[in-house]
C-alpha cells in the first residue's frame, strides 16, 4: 500500500472554504488527504499553527486564501503571504522540505482549482515520504 500523507489545510471562510465546498457540490473528486480547518481569513494563520501541525504528525500543510485583491478583509491574504518567506526560511533550517508547505489562492468559484491544488500537493508530499519529526530529539546549546 502506498504512503497516505496527512495534510492539514487552512482555508479562509470567504473564498477557499467555499471553493472547497463547491468542489463537493459539483461532485468533483479529489484526494482525501487534506483535512480542512476553517479560519475567517488566511491572515489569521499563525506560523506556529504550521509548526504545531508538523509537531503533531502532519506530513504537509496547505494554506489557502482569497486571490490577491479579492480578500474579504481587504488585505489579510497579503499579510499571510508576507509571513511565508520568513517561515520558509525557518522550515529550511529545521530540515523541513519546502514542498511540505504551500500557500495558494482559491476563489469561491474555483472548485476545479481547489481540486487541482489538493491533488498536486498530495502527490508532492507523497513523493517526499512521511515527515520525520526530529523536534523532540533536537539538542540545543
Amino acid at each position: 500500500m502506498s504512503f497516505e500523507p496527512k495534510i492539514v489545510g487552512f482555508c479562509c471562510n470567504w473564498c477557499s472554504y467555499r471553493g472547497a465546498d463547491l468542489a463537493g457540490t459539483a461532485r468533483m473528486k479529489c484526494s482525501p488527504n487534506v483535512r480542512i480547518i476553517r479560519v475567517m481569513c488566511s491572515g489569521r494563520v499563525e506560523p506556529t499553527f504550521i509548526l504545531k501541525a508538523f509537531e503533531l504528525g502532519a506530513d504537509g500543510v496547505l494554506v489557502l486564501g482569497c486571490h490577491p485583491g479579492d480578500c474579504h478583509y481587504v488585505e489579510g491574504n497579503y499579510k499571510a503571504a508576507r509571513r511565508m518567506p520568513l517561515l520558509k526560511k525557518m522550515l529550511a533550517q529545521m530540515g523541513i522540505e519546502e514542498d511540505r508547505v504551500r500557500l495558494d489562492w482559491v476563489s469561491a468559484s474555483e472548485g476545479d482549482r481547489f481540486v487541482a491544488i489538493v491533488d498536486e500537493m498530495t502527490e508532492k508530499v507523497r513523493a517526499l515520504g512521511p515527515f520525520k519529526n526530529n523536534f523532540k530529539e533536537a539538542k540545543y546549546g
Binding site: A20, D21, L22, A23, G24, R27, M28, C30, P32, V115
Partner: peptide, 15 residues
C-alpha cells in the same frame, strides 16, 4: 463538514 468536503469529493469508502 463530512458532506461537501468528504463524502462528495471522495470515491473510496474506507478513505
Amino acid at each position: 463538514n463530512i458532506r461537501e468536503q468528504c463524502s462528495w469529493t471522495t470515491e473510496d469508502h474506507e478513505k
